[in-house]
Amino acid sequence: MRILLFVFTAILLAASTPAQAQVDAISKYFSKYVDDERFTVVYISPKAFQMFDKLDIDLDDDEANAIKEVVKDLRGLRILVAEENTMALYKEASQMINKNEYEVLMTVRNKGEESVDFLIKDTGDIIDELLMIVGGPEDFVLMSFVGQIDINKISQMAKAFEDDEEDEDEDKED
């Protein structure tokens, strides 16, 4: 009898385990966009990310290092870009995301010009996916970074570019 119970428990467990592996937001919510001709689709595989160390990137050292740090943690990047109907697409996209699954890191609306949403899916301190939705007057961009993302590295990278932008601003002023 014990064996019978064991067999049944095993089968029940096997049947109830959700078969869904880690699925990124684009595969889950936006697959219809991927097939859509109006969208430009780019996928960067984990293999390509591994090549980063071997190639020189045409950037300042700080920026290159910051990018390399971020890239180390990435397991995939999916990008969708559309150039028509952008605001409608942005609205649709931000509604489609299940807010129980994705946490809004921040949302920015620039007075009818451009809206940017940053969404994360995390387990504890590690971010499994970082999703950026940009709805501007000219572009609709959907980017999904998957991996084991360290938000501190992302912020350091943002900072490296920010300093650079400021430098450039100063240059212009001079």
Partner: peptide, 22 residues
Amino acid sequence: DEEAIAEATAALKLLASKLNGS
């Protein structure tokens, strides 16, 4: 791979600039 890296770099740059802007 070069193209892939260029695309990824551009994407990360865009991400950084949007993060900064926001």
